[in-house]
Design a protein around this nucleic acid. Structure first.
Lengths: 298, 298
DNA sequence: ATAATGTTTTGTCCTAGACAAAACAGCTGG
DNA sequence: CCAGCTGTTTTGTCTAGGACAAAACATTAT
């Protein structure tokens, strides 16, 4: 096991090459070895530590305070954001689902989800179970009780379940609005899109799902090619905050004025909407937005 | 519309910042403007041209020959790889499916796929329809008759169809081998994974699908956490060839010896397998590999 | 035709510096 | 005690130009 070069570390940790070199200059960590060509070689334990650091950064900590902290300190740092609300009264607890996921119990998880779906109906199921569960799993990862692969596992199982549920809905083929659903490059979280699709389809909108990570010019082409009324984007909290607004402005400039741009997801909290962009911080807002769209003049 | 900065161009085109600067130095294209801070600003038409160039590069052309070519020349360049085989005798034609996709006819596409599935059975359907169709769509994109968003659309619709088909299979919960299925970072193509999952499940292996883009250390953790016998990786032709072997060696070094590493997809053609890695260039090879695994000593 | 060699092309990594935007800290005034 | 303004520090991203190994190609020898 020779170690990782700088691009491998970028891929593993999500920390860019520039930042890795900058931290080395500024803070003295990481301190990779060098190979025969003078290129950086990161040993596995430094990569692991960089992963921990990245997790804390995503929780709102700052590099200057944590890059040089000892491993024990890293483990003890609490999340720097408001603690998740305790189970809202009247809403079903998510704990059983989290336990089933942690136990890797696929049939049990699917059974419990199915149970909740038929009891609550698809709309309430999405709003009261899937959306909070997604947040809870993210929190569990941040606090270290879920591994990354367990989050992937959750996303995969839940995608399958949601897609199947959406598949049982009647098709709104000819109805309006027509909504192209996707995510921008770098954003690979699919679940937000599927939740939005379920909500929109229940409101009798026609969705054209395009999966994740569409280049902006392709979103433009897709909107034209599918004669969309609306482009719906989902942005998770993992998306780099600094890039959200420039990206939205760029996309807005590419789209024709007649096409609305709606953006949802945890990545847009506390943001001011650029002109011509509608922010939908909560899934519930999507329901209202469709109603308003139908009442628009013209 | 001010233009794109260098990272936006990297995201849009998939051409790295280093390469963009290098081309500018070496070939004199692209020639972005500069903003008030002296930073590059790429106008939209240069971004479009870079997209065309990237497509030709992926077809095997070389930068020195095409970066400076005039737009008309770019359009006229033929794919530099063996032309796709004409429809194999005895196999159903793919043209009707391609036409339905091009027409954005979702119900028609799903109906035709369903028809083929029940006629051929899942295994033959995957081998004779889905796999060649994926190649055909890729070729259609390379030749310019499909847009990127249409390829995304195809992938999304076909994923849904395949997942649903897999969902109807009986569960192989307790059976062996246990196969963790995923793709490495940068590799976002899901379809290869789903085809493999269908094939493996039909062979009564137990699959643990983790979706795409798992960091290597997370693949290691997942293999341990799920007590996998095999890690199955799918690598498409879009994955940078130079990075395949180093990545496989790195992952192989991370995994315990008792866990096999199987790799499939168009991205491994003409590659020599590193020690301890089994290459499955064709889906059919996956069937044989499961049989051999069951006969292994011990 | 295949294998071995030399040459060109190409991508990735390097150092070191600059600067704008975000985040913080401190202050003022309601 | 909190909201808003101001100055300072922190932080990420961009710049330039150079170096070099590996891949791809062209050429020669078996």
């Amino acid at each position: 096991m020779t170690g990782f070069n700088i691009s491998a570390v970028e891929r593993e940790t999500g920390i860019s090459r520039d930042v890795l070199r900058m931290w080395e200059r500024r803070y003295g960590f990481p301190v990779p070895g060098r190979d025969a060509n003078g290129e950086r070689v990161y040993p596995i334990d430094q990569v692991e530590r960089l992963r921990s650091i990245k997790r804390l950064l995503d929780q709102g900590h700052r590099p200057g305070k944590i890059v040089l902290a000892a491993p024990e300190e890293l483990a003890s740092l609490a999340p720097r954001r408001p603690a998740p609300l305790a189970a809202a009264p009247g809403r079903p607890s998510l704990q059983p689902l989290l336990d089933l996921l942690k136990a890797h119990d696929v049939p049990g998880y699917q059974r419990e989800m199915q149970h909740r779906l038929v009891r609550e109906g698809l709309q309430r199921f999405v709003l009261d179970t899937v959306a909070p569960l997604t947040v809870a799993v993210g929190d569990a990862w941040e606090s270290g009780s879920f591994e990354v692969f367990e989050e992937h596992f959750f996303a995969e199982q839940t995608s399958r379940f949601l897609r199947q549920a959406i598949g049982t809905l009647p098709e709104n083929r000819a109805s309006r609005p027509r909504i192209v659903l996707t995510t921008p490059p770098e954003e690979q979280h699919m679940l937000g899109l599927l939740m939005a699709e379920a909500i929109f389809e229940l409101e009798q909108a026609h969705c054209i799902p395009l999966g994740v990570q569409m280049p902006l010019v392709e979103i433009q082409r897709a909107a034209l090619g599918h004669q969309a009324d609306i482009v719906g984007l989902s942005i998770s909290s993992a998306f780099p905050t600094r890039q959200v607004l420039p990206m939205l402005e760029q996309l807005r400039a590419l789209l024709p004025e007649s096409v609305a741009l709606w953006v949802g997801g945890a990545g847009i909290e506390r943001l001011a909407a650029p002109a011509g962009v509608r922010l939908l911080p909560l899934l519930e807002d999507a329901i209202a937005a469709v109603g308003e769209w139908r009442l628009r003049p013209g």
